Simulated scan of single mutants.
Amino acid sequence: MQQYAKQYEKVLQKIQSACQQSDRDPQSVQLLAVSKMHSTQSIEAFYQLGQRAFGENYLQEALEKIDVLQALQIEWHFIGHVQRNKTKHLAEKFDWVHGVDRLIIAERLSSQRPEQLPALNICLQVNIDDQNSKDGCQPDEVADLVKKISVLPNLRLRGLMVIPKPENYAAFAQTQQLFQKVKELHAQPQDWDTLSMGMSGDLEQAIAAGATIVRIGTALFGQRDYSSAD
Protein backbone atom coordinates (compact mmCIF):
# COMPACT_ATOMS: atom_id res chain seq x y z
CA MET A 1 0.00 0.00 0.00
CA GLN A 2 2.83 2.38 0.85
CA GLN A 3 4.50 1.79 -2.52
CA TYR A 4 1.22 2.45 -4.34
CA ALA A 5 0.79 5.66 -2.35
CA LYS A 6 4.25 6.86 -3.42
CA GLN A 7 3.60 6.02 -7.07
CA TYR A 8 0.17 7.63 -6.98
CA GLU A 9 1.51 10.85 -5.49
CA LYS A 10 4.35 10.92 -8.01
CA VAL A 11 1.95 10.65 -10.95
CA LEU A 12 -0.38 13.29 -9.53
CA GLN A 13 2.60 15.60 -9.09
CA LYS A 14 3.68 15.02 -12.68
CA ILE A 15 0.20 15.93 -13.88
CA GLN A 16 0.16 19.05 -11.73
CA SER A 17 3.61 20.11 -12.91
CA ALA A 18 2.70 19.53 -16.57
CA CYS A 19 -0.45 21.61 -16.12
CA GLN A 20 1.49 24.45 -14.50
CA GLN A 21 3.99 24.49 -17.38
CA SER A 22 1.11 24.67 -19.85
CA ASP A 23 -0.85 27.23 -17.83
CA ARG A 24 -3.70 24.79 -17.30
CA ASP A 25 -5.86 24.00 -14.31
CA PRO A 26 -4.86 20.56 -12.93
CA GLN A 27 -8.55 19.88 -12.38
CA SER A 28 -8.99 19.91 -16.17
CA VAL A 29 -6.98 16.68 -16.52
CA GLN A 30 -8.43 13.39 -15.29
CA LEU A 31 -6.15 10.54 -14.28
CA LEU A 32 -7.39 7.23 -15.69
CA ALA A 33 -5.64 4.35 -13.91
CA VAL A 34 -5.09 1.58 -16.46
CA SER A 35 -5.52 -1.56 -14.40
CA LYS A 36 -5.44 -4.24 -17.11
CA MET A 37 -3.67 -7.41 -15.93
CA HIS A 38 -3.46 -6.09 -12.38
CA SER A 39 -5.32 -7.53 -9.41
CA THR A 40 -8.54 -6.38 -7.83
CA GLN A 41 -6.51 -5.90 -4.65
CA SER A 42 -4.31 -3.32 -6.35
CA ILE A 43 -7.38 -1.54 -7.71
CA GLU A 44 -8.83 -1.47 -4.19
CA ALA A 45 -5.57 -0.02 -2.90
CA PHE A 46 -5.70 2.89 -5.36
CA TYR A 47 -9.40 3.33 -4.63
CA GLN A 48 -8.56 3.79 -0.96
CA LEU A 49 -6.04 6.45 -2.01
CA GLY A 50 -8.81 8.36 -3.79
CA GLN A 51 -8.65 7.08 -7.38
CA ARG A 52 -12.07 6.46 -8.92
CA ALA A 53 -11.59 6.01 -12.70
CA PHE A 54 -10.05 2.75 -13.91
CA GLY A 55 -9.43 1.59 -17.49
CA GLU A 56 -9.46 -1.97 -18.82
CA ASN A 57 -8.48 -3.40 -22.21
CA TYR A 58 -9.67 -6.99 -22.04
CA LEU A 59 -13.41 -7.49 -21.69
CA GLN A 60 -13.60 -10.81 -19.85
CA GLU A 61 -10.97 -9.73 -17.33
CA ALA A 62 -12.80 -6.43 -16.85
CA LEU A 63 -16.18 -8.06 -16.31
CA GLU A 64 -14.74 -10.27 -13.59
CA LYS A 65 -13.23 -7.26 -11.84
CA ILE A 66 -16.43 -5.24 -12.13
CA ASP A 67 -18.32 -8.09 -10.48
CA VAL A 68 -15.83 -8.48 -7.63
CA LEU A 69 -15.62 -4.73 -7.01
CA GLN A 70 -19.28 -3.85 -7.53
CA ALA A 71 -19.57 -2.42 -4.00
CA LEU A 72 -17.08 0.33 -4.88
CA GLN A 73 -18.13 3.50 -6.72
CA ILE A 74 -15.72 2.98 -9.61
CA GLU A 75 -16.03 4.74 -12.96
CA TRP A 76 -15.14 1.99 -15.45
CA HIS A 77 -13.57 2.88 -18.81
CA PHE A 78 -13.06 0.40 -21.63
CA ILE A 79 -10.01 1.43 -23.65
CA GLY A 80 -9.45 -1.65 -25.80
CA HIS A 81 -10.58 -2.44 -29.33
CA VAL A 82 -14.36 -2.73 -29.54
CA GLN A 83 -15.62 -5.83 -31.31
CA ARG A 84 -19.19 -6.03 -32.59
CA ASN A 85 -20.01 -9.19 -30.64
CA LYS A 86 -18.99 -7.58 -27.32
CA THR A 87 -20.89 -4.31 -27.44
CA LYS A 88 -23.74 -5.58 -25.24
CA HIS A 89 -21.45 -6.12 -22.25
CA LEU A 90 -19.79 -2.76 -22.81
CA ALA A 91 -23.16 -1.00 -23.01
CA GLU A 92 -24.37 -2.65 -19.82
CA LYS A 93 -21.29 -2.51 -17.58
CA PHE A 94 -19.14 0.52 -18.44
CA ASP A 95 -19.36 4.28 -17.96
CA TRP A 96 -16.99 5.12 -20.82
CA VAL A 97 -15.90 3.40 -24.05
CA HIS A 98 -12.83 4.98 -25.68
CA GLY A 99 -12.30 2.76 -28.70
CA VAL A 100 -15.28 3.50 -30.96
CA ASP A 101 -14.12 3.79 -34.56
CA ARG A 102 -17.13 2.75 -36.67
CA LEU A 103 -20.75 3.87 -36.90
CA ILE A 104 -22.05 0.32 -36.46
CA ILE A 105 -20.28 0.07 -33.11
CA ALA A 106 -21.86 3.29 -31.88
CA GLU A 107 -25.29 2.18 -33.11
CA ARG A 108 -25.01 -1.11 -31.24
CA LEU A 109 -23.83 0.58 -28.04
CA SER A 110 -26.74 3.01 -28.27
CA SER A 111 -29.38 0.34 -28.83
CA GLN A 112 -27.96 -1.95 -26.13
CA ARG A 113 -27.49 0.67 -23.38
CA PRO A 114 -30.06 -0.07 -20.63
CA GLU A 115 -32.62 2.70 -20.35
CA GLN A 116 -32.22 2.98 -16.59
CA LEU A 117 -28.52 3.87 -16.92
CA PRO A 118 -27.12 7.31 -17.79
CA ALA A 119 -26.01 7.85 -21.36
CA LEU A 120 -22.77 5.99 -22.19
CA ASN A 121 -19.79 8.30 -22.66
CA ILE A 122 -17.80 7.45 -25.79
CA CYS A 123 -14.70 8.69 -27.60
CA LEU A 124 -13.81 8.19 -31.24
CA GLN A 125 -10.52 6.38 -31.62
CA VAL A 126 -8.49 7.97 -34.41
CA ASN A 127 -5.46 6.37 -36.07
CA ILE A 128 -3.80 9.76 -36.04
CA ASP A 129 -0.45 8.71 -37.52
CA ASP A 130 -1.63 5.91 -39.85
CA GLN A 131 -0.18 2.90 -38.03
CA ASN A 132 -0.92 -0.46 -39.61
CA SER A 133 -0.94 -2.08 -36.19
CA LYS A 134 -3.43 0.30 -34.61
CA ASP A 135 -7.21 0.45 -34.73
CA GLY A 136 -9.09 3.67 -35.26
CA CYS A 137 -10.81 5.66 -37.95
CA GLN A 138 -8.89 7.93 -40.28
CA PRO A 139 -8.73 11.66 -39.44
CA ASP A 140 -10.74 12.56 -42.54
CA GLU A 141 -13.59 10.30 -41.36
CA VAL A 142 -14.05 12.00 -37.99
CA ALA A 143 -16.34 14.88 -38.98
CA ASP A 144 -18.83 12.59 -40.71
CA LEU A 145 -18.81 10.09 -37.84
CA VAL A 146 -19.41 12.87 -35.33
CA LYS A 147 -22.38 14.11 -37.33
CA LYS A 148 -23.96 10.64 -37.46
CA ILE A 149 -23.14 9.46 -33.95
CA SER A 150 -24.22 12.70 -32.25
CA VAL A 151 -27.88 12.00 -32.98
CA LEU A 152 -27.89 8.50 -31.48
CA PRO A 153 -29.81 8.14 -28.20
CA ASN A 154 -28.24 6.77 -25.02
CA LEU A 155 -24.75 7.99 -25.95
CA ARG A 156 -22.69 11.08 -25.10
CA LEU A 157 -20.01 11.58 -27.73
CA ARG A 158 -17.29 13.32 -25.74
CA GLY A 159 -14.25 13.61 -28.03
CA LEU A 160 -11.23 11.76 -29.40
CA MET A 161 -8.85 9.05 -28.25
CA VAL A 162 -5.45 8.37 -29.83
CA ILE A 163 -2.48 6.03 -29.28
CA PRO A 164 0.33 7.55 -31.36
CA LYS A 165 3.66 5.94 -32.11
CA PRO A 166 6.14 6.24 -29.22
CA GLU A 167 7.70 9.71 -29.04
CA ASN A 168 5.54 11.01 -31.88
CA TYR A 169 4.59 14.03 -29.82
CA ALA A 170 3.48 15.96 -32.89
CA ALA A 171 0.51 13.58 -33.09
CA PHE A 172 -0.90 15.09 -29.91
CA ALA A 173 -0.97 18.55 -31.47
CA GLN A 174 -2.51 17.10 -34.64
CA THR A 175 -5.23 15.47 -32.57
CA GLN A 176 -5.93 18.73 -30.77
CA GLN A 177 -6.22 20.55 -34.10
CA LEU A 178 -8.62 17.89 -35.38
CA PHE A 179 -10.63 18.17 -32.17
CA GLN A 180 -10.95 21.95 -32.56
CA LYS A 181 -11.82 21.69 -36.25
CA VAL A 182 -14.71 19.34 -35.51
CA LYS A 183 -15.84 21.57 -32.66
CA GLU A 184 -16.00 24.54 -35.02
CA LEU A 185 -17.89 22.60 -37.69
CA HIS A 186 -20.56 21.32 -35.32
CA ALA A 187 -22.42 23.42 -32.80
CA GLN A 188 -23.43 20.02 -31.42
CA PRO A 189 -22.53 17.90 -29.58
CA GLN A 190 -22.40 20.13 -26.54
CA ASP A 191 -20.46 17.40 -24.77
CA TRP A 192 -17.48 17.64 -27.14
CA ASP A 193 -14.92 18.19 -24.38
CA THR A 194 -12.54 15.22 -24.16
CA LEU A 195 -9.09 14.39 -25.50
CA SER A 196 -8.04 10.97 -24.22
CA MET A 197 -4.31 10.80 -24.94
CA GLY A 198 -1.03 10.38 -23.17
CA MET A 199 0.37 7.47 -21.16
CA SER A 200 3.10 6.92 -18.58
CA GLY A 201 5.94 7.90 -20.90
CA ASP A 202 4.45 10.97 -22.55
CA LEU A 203 1.80 12.44 -20.30
CA GLU A 204 3.59 15.81 -20.14
CA GLN A 205 3.56 16.23 -23.92
CA ALA A 206 -0.07 15.13 -24.10
CA ILE A 207 -1.15 17.61 -21.43
CA ALA A 208 0.74 20.39 -23.22
CA ALA A 209 -1.33 19.59 -26.32
CA GLY A 210 -4.63 19.68 -24.43
CA ALA A 211 -5.25 16.16 -23.09
CA THR A 212 -8.16 15.99 -20.65
CA ILE A 213 -7.74 12.29 -19.79
CA VAL A 214 -4.32 10.67 -19.41
CA ARG A 215 -4.24 6.87 -19.33
CA ILE A 216 -1.59 5.77 -16.84
CA GLY A 217 -0.76 2.14 -16.05
CA THR A 218 2.91 1.30 -15.58
CA ALA A 219 3.78 4.42 -13.58
CA LEU A 220 1.06 3.48 -11.08
CA PHE A 221 0.91 -0.30 -10.95
CA GLY A 222 4.38 -1.25 -12.20
CA GLN A 223 5.21 -3.54 -15.11
CA ARG A 224 2.60 -6.03 -16.28
CA ASP A 225 3.17 -9.78 -16.55
CA TYR A 226 2.00 -10.78 -20.02
CA SER A 227 3.09 -14.42 -19.68
CA SER A 228 -0.42 -15.44 -18.66
CA ALA A 229 -2.26 -13.24 -21.16
CA ASP A 230 -4.64 -14.73 -23.70
Rank of each mutant, 00 (worst) to 15 (best):
L117K: 14
F179T: 03
D193V: 14
E115G: 13
I207Q: 04
S196Y: 04
T212A: 08
L32F: 04
E141H: 13
V34A: 09
K165Y: 09
A170V: 12
E204H: 12
I122P: 00
H89I: 02
V162F: 04
A53W: 11
Q223T: 13
E141K: 13
K147R: 14
L157V: 00
F94C: 04
A53H: 14
Q20G: 11
V151N: 06
D25T: 09
N154S: 05
T218L: 08
I149E: 00
L155W: 02
A53V: 11
W192V: 06
P189S: 10
V11G: 05
K93C: 13
R158N: 07
D25G: 12
I104R: 14
K183L: 12
Q180K: 14
W76H: 01
F78L: 03
S111C: 06
E9P: 06
S133F: 05
K165C: 08
L103M: 14
L155R: 01
E75F: 05
C123E: 03
C137W: 11
V182G: 02
P164D: 00
G136E: 02
E44V: 08
Q180T: 14
I213K: 07
L152E: 01
T40H: 10
L90G: 03
Y169I: 11
R24D: 09
A171N: 00
N154E: 01
K10N: 15
V146K: 04
D230K: 14
I213E: 07
L160K: 05
A173Q: 14
E107M: 05
L203P: 00
D144Q: 15
G50Q: 10
G80C: 05
Q21T: 12
K165A: 15
Q30W: 10
E204M: 08
G55Q: 03
F46K: 06
R108L: 11
D101L: 08
A219F: 06
K88N: 13
T218E: 14
W96F: 15
N127R: 10
D230M: 11
